[in-house]
Design a protein around this nucleic acid. Structure first.
Lengths: 127, 127
DNA sequence: TCGATAGTTCAATAAACATTGAACATAGGA
DNA sequence: TCCTATGTTCAATGTTTATTGAACTATCGA
């Protein structure tokens, strides 16, 4: 099966989501920051595109982390033209691991500065 | 500073406990099983010794995982004679990351067989 | 059709990680 | 005092991981 760049990438089904993979994904500071920013955005538009995270790491490094977040079932990528929009798979997470994502997110929020959860441009924008 | 084997090992203070380290610790299946069994035991005696986990891995491998669990602040080791008794640092976890440990534990419980959370002798004992 | 923009994929690298067995340390009991 | 049981520490091994830059693909608009 050929995977070209233009089609939506594969995502695990809800039942395929595994706890160790999710926890491992969230244990990386960059991925935690991505998830955190996606969660912040949920109140507004629920979606962000790759470029919105450019403050966190280089492009190819981000693509690597996005792939991990997709593969573990934490987020969903939708292809639209030359952009990829992502959002958290909140309902799937809640169904599989009730309360887990919220507990991680509020724990992260408490340590927001220690964890450098906001990318530089994000911090600048906050002024 | 010399660390001999007979003294209690170092543990991080409550404030030193870091979210990424905790999540990373819990993302390993063997360590998750250790934490899960410690949590089960809480209803009874709150403590287990190293040997109680022999079904999960070899001795030296277990010692490695115990060290990680201590260093991230998830558990506490008390030396008593030739035994080391461990217990979860529940209150510290709850203070730093409210609801997190319970969410992980109940998520793990849901997938107990998929995750092979009980060591072989534990399963045998359950008969 | 050309160029710019948005991301991905690949190869290479260095660091971190899990696992093993052997050697060691410690305490308790015969 | 010696033997045994309980764990830890160390060195070696192979695997996985994160990070980088360069090459590539795909889409949009002028």
């Amino acid at each position: 099966m050929i995977r070209t760049m233009s089609r939506t990438p594969l995502h695990p089904t809800r039942e395929q989501i595994e706890l160790p993979m999710v926890l491992d994904c969230l244990s990386d500071p960059i991925r935690l920051a991505i998830v955190y920013q996606l969660a912040q955005q949920e109140r507004v538009s629920s979606e962000l595109c790759c470029g919105d995270f450019n403050g966190l790491a280089g492009k190819s490094n981000l693509a690597y982390h996005f792939a991990k977040l997709r593969e573990c079932g934490l987020m969903l990528t939708r292809v639209a033209g030359t952009n990829r929009f992502m959002r958290l798979r909140r309902e799937d997470m809640e169904a599989r691991f009730p309360g887990l994502l919220d507990a991680v997110l509020s724990s992260a929020a408490k340590d927001a500065d220690r964890l450098q959860l906001l990318s530089e441009c994000e911090v600048v924008k906050a002024d």
